[in-house]
Computed example of a mutant assay.
Amino acid sequence: MDAGSGGQLALGVLVQHRMATTEQIHRVSALEVRIEQSRRRLARLCAEGLVD
């Protein structure tokens, strides 16, 4: 996995909750950055086949 620490945190949140919107993941894991960064992290996880 090469999604960076933010991506790892997002993946951890999804493992715990099974389903979450991009905004929910952003609020839990990355409020210090803009939501676009969260979208990019989730897109990388999706490209790696780790989330859908």
Results as ranks from 00 to 15, higher is better:
Met1Val: 09
Met1Arg: 06
Asp2Gln: 12
Gly4Ala: 11
Gly4Arg: 13
Ser5Asp: 10
Ser5Thr: 14
Gly6Phe: 13
Gly6Arg: 13
Gly6Cys: 04
Gly6Met: 04
Gly6Gln: 06
Gly7His: 03
Gly7Tyr: 05
Gln8Trp: 09
Gln8Glu: 10
Leu9Glu: 12
Leu9Ser: 14
Leu9Asp: 11
Ala10Val: 08
Leu11Lys: 01
Leu11Pro: 04
Gly12Val: 00
Gly12Asp: 15
Val13Gln: 11
Val13Gly: 03
Val13Ser: 05
Leu14Glu: 02
Leu14Gly: 06
Leu14Cys: 09
Val15Gln: 15
Val15Tyr: 07
Val15Lys: 15
Val15Glu: 13
Gln16Trp: 06
Gln16Gly: 12
His17Met: 07
His17Cys: 00
His17Ser: 01
His17Gln: 10
Arg18Gln: 11
Arg18Gly: 03
Met19Pro: 00
Met19Leu: 14
Met19Asp: 04
Ala20Leu: 15
Ala20Phe: 00
Ala20Arg: 04
Ala20His: 02
Thr21Ala: 08
Thr21Asp: 01
Thr21Pro: 02
Thr21Ile: 05
Thr21Asn: 01
Thr22Cys: 06
Thr22Gly: 01
Thr22Asn: 07
Gln24Phe: 00
Gln24Thr: 00
Ile25Gln: 05
Ile25Met: 09
Ile25Ala: 02
Ile25Ser: 09
His26Lys: 04
His26Ala: 06
Arg27Thr: 02
Ser29Val: 13
Ser29Thr: 15
Ser29Gly: 15
Ser29Trp: 10
Ala30Glu: 02
Ala30Asn: 14
Glu32Pro: 11
Glu32Leu: 12
Val33Glu: 15
Val33His: 08
Arg34Lys: 11
Ile35Met: 09
Glu36Lys: 08
Glu36Met: 01
Gln37Met: 11
Ser38Trp: 01
Ser38Phe: 06
Arg39Ala: 05
Arg40Met: 13
Arg40Phe: 00
Arg40Thr: 10
Arg41Val: 10
Arg41Tyr: 07
Arg41Trp: 01
Leu42Ser: 04
Leu42Gln: 03
Leu42His: 03
Ala43Glu: 14
Ala43Phe: 07
Ala43Arg: 11
Arg44Glu: 15
Cys46Val: 04
Cys46Ser: 14
Cys46Leu: 09
Cys46Arg: 15
Ala47Arg: 10
Glu48Leu: 12
Glu48Phe: 12
Glu48Cys: 05
Gly49Val: 09
Gly49Asn: 06
Gly49Thr: 08
Gly49His: 04
Val51Ala: 00
Val51Asp: 02
Val51Phe: 00
Asp52Thr: 15
Asp52His: 09
Asp52Cys: 09
